[in-house]
Design a protein around this nucleic acid. Structure first.
Lengths: 144, 144
DNA sequence: TTAATAAAAGACTAAAAGCTCCTTTACCTG
DNA sequence: CAGGTAAAGGAGCTTTTAGTCTTTTATTAA
């Protein structure tokens, strides 16, 4: 479904959101260790998201990655599009260049329903929405 | 969503089904040209499906790939699982090793609904079901 | 104002996915 | 049985994705 990079990005963003809500910044080391992710790799991914302005960061002691209030309202779809593009959300299920209601592939109409469901899921799911579940431990981002 | 290999496989299988229903076998060349696929690559993919017994083939003049009657009843899910495995159909949306109703990731329950929808779509869609649409030209597998 | 801390940048390596080419084997037809 | 046809098998190439390492830049605090 999503690329590994994108899975990592979503997990990291959810974690950063959780910490940001409590006024903490998160270092790469902290994120990588908590989520069991390869440290230099998640660093790249997050630096990319900073460049794309989905995320803030500061250097130096006490620095790290964080989200502002607006960031906590970010829907997951923004992360997915930033990392994986929108092929998944708008492309043909069988990979056809040209596939539309007017010239559908065999599974076009059924597939479109699913894709719409995915768009709705990712569009309505805001980072901030998951904070209480994570605090509650009724949802998880890693083992332990 | 699906790997490119899997997209190719589904398209080729639909085409072979269509031709098999009319009593024709399809050569690699014919399949590749009709569907605009790289010839040596789709050859590999189909030979793999023959080994996995989702498809029949014969060598020599007049030979090629074909499906028997039972093959026309094959659901798309068989192809997807044979080519891509079942990570997509049963794995966690965020890539967690451990993700279940009892220990869900943040999007587990919503994601599960979509996954179930996909399973249903792929499980109920039989190759033979699409033949009339393709003949009609109310569904397409390639440009032209 | 220097030492420590932490992200940014860039060059690099490894593995997987996608794709090609060449040789062999099986089958059919004249 | 010889020649042509078509899949099978296996080795290898290319591109993309995933992941590493090293150096630089910014920030803080003693």
């Amino acid at each position: 479904m999503f690329s590994k990079t994108c899975e990592y990005a979503i997990r990291a963003m959810l974690y950063i959101a959780q910490r940001s809500a409590k006024g903490h910044k998160s270092s790469i080391r902290n994120i990588a260790q908590t989520l069991n992710l390869p440290e230099p790799f998640i660093a790249k991914v997050l630096q990319d998201l900073v460049r794309k302005e989905l995320l803030q960061s500061t250097k130096g002691p006490g620095g790290g990655f964080f989200l502002d209030k607006a960031g906590l309202e970010m829907p997951l779809v923004s992360i997915v599009v930033a990392v994986d593009g929108n092929r998944l959300l708008s492309g043909c299920g069988l990979g056809l260049e040209e596939c539309s209601d007017a010239r559908p592939c065999p599974i076009h109409f059924e597939f479109k329903k699913l894709r719409t469901g995915l768009q709705e899921l990712l569009g309505s799911a805001k980072l901030g929405e998951f904070l209480h579940q994570l605090e509650n431990r009724s949802a998880f981002l890693s083992r332990d």
